[in-house]
Amino acid sequence: MKSLILQTATRSLVAVLLLFSIFLLLRGHDEPGGGFIGGLVAAAAFALYAIAFDVASTRRMLGMRPQMMIAIGLAMAGGSGVISLLASRPYLEHLWYHTDIPGFGEIHLGTFLLFDIGVFLVVIGVTLLVILTLSEE
């Protein structure tokens, strides 16, 4: 199924969707959003690409195997909890680092961001693993 309209629209939509997914990921810090929903949106972008074009080119666009994405995501999410263990705090307690950037204002950096990015990657990886496996045959 090759539709020129879908393909043309997809080219621009994928970029917007991926950008939006990152926005959702970062917004989840203090407001509704977060790694899970961001990951789903990103996965939807790749799935759309797979429908408009084909699975092989989606895999090329992804640049790595979904399995690898799950692994990196799990490592980040799980690893973010270990940092607090090293600081003799319970597993998964998140540590915060506050800093002032001149001209930008105060920002909080937390190990939680690492966790959220990990979730983001795991969700993309799992969803795409299933979608691509199912649509490949």
Binding site: F36, V126, T127, V130, T133, L134, E137
Partner: peptide, 20 residues
């Protein structure tokens, strides 16, 4: 729901493989 989503995805793959 999230867990159900994962389990459902697996079940679908399994159902397809079984059918094949």
């Amino acid at each position: 729901i999230v867990i159900g989503f994962g389990v459902l995805a697996f079940t679908l793959v399994l159902v397809k493989r079984v059918y094949q």
